[in-house]
Design a protein around this nucleic acid. Structure first.
Lengths: 150, 150
DNA sequence: TTAAAGAGTACCGATTTAGTCCTATTGGGA
DNA sequence: TCCCAATAGGACTAAATCGGTACTCTTTAA
């Protein structure tokens, strides 16, 4: 019902992998191999994360990427924003000043902000540390595999 | 950061319009005109909503669509699911039985369920009646237009 | 019986997204 | 000081998705 981009998924997977041993530096090649993400794509994602200051990069030989902050301080919301960018929910909310012709509708659409906020809050409540927890150890949420919705 | 499809947006807009006078029957043409949604697309959306039992349809002349339930009983989550379908957040969660090669990652990805649930809960908390409230009358959430994120 | 309405389906076209490649820059070590 | 390993950045291509359109069938009231 709501789609998360693959790149964002990759980002979370790779960051979770890095969260296992904070402070360590990982090269793109190593991360790509361990997370089964195609290397060029992994490189792209890592660059985005570094640009958003979620990762610290070290160039040159023996270089690589490391978490810029403790995993518990990095939220899923941040990761998604870093990769997918701040995409608005509807055109009317996109900060564009143009009205959509039907004034009344424009104002109605403002109510999306309430939905936006609810979702953002939800995503900000989940940290990278939460995601890195092996599934078995995570609090049991009911397992309905066919569900998979958001 | 998370994109809602245009069709889902249209759906909410049209349903909100209909919520203004429950019990009334609206033709596709009229709804399309009043909500500034292209008519063929409006027809498509309305069919989807009818199929999901959010709308009741009346065929034949003098026919049209009407809300199947009170606006307060229809959640935004239902509307989005009706239009966009239950799209999974990641491939691993899609109910597919195939593993992604890296076992440990698969289990990690299970933690997405927590995120999924949080978002679904958020969307289920907002009803069509909430969305139909003119913006001015809605409880004031801070107005940061540049935000527009989800 | 006819016209007005929705139901269903199949199909394009355009946009977006994922993925690839190339070049520049940086830094460590021999 | 030179070379190699590694990231930075951007341009480009391919593919998947989504928005939109068209056509035919069914229903129903006048």
């Amino acid at each position: 019902m709501i789609r998360l981009s693959k790149l964002a998924d990759y980002a979370v997977v790779m960051l979770s992998y890095m969260a296992a041993r904070e402070g360590e530096v990982y090269t793109t090649a190593r991360l790509a191999e361990r997370t089964a993400v195609p290397e060029p794509t992994a490189a792209k994602v890592l660059k985005l994360l570094a640009r958003s200051a979620l990762l610290e990069s070290q160039r040159g030989s023996n270089g690589g990427y490391g978490l810029a902050r403790p995993a518990a301080d990095i939220t899923v919301a941040e990761i998604i924003v870093a990769v997918d960018g701040p995409i608005a929910l509807t055109a009317c909310v996109e900060g564009s000043s143009e009205h959509c012709g039907v004034e009344q509708l424009c104002s109605m659409r403002g109510n999306w902000n309430r939905v936006n906020r609810a979702i953002r809050d939800a995503l900000e409540d989940v940290t990278l540390a939460d995601m890195a927890v092996p599934f078995a150890a995570a609090p049991v949420l009911e397992r309905r595999p066919e569900q998979g919705l958001v």
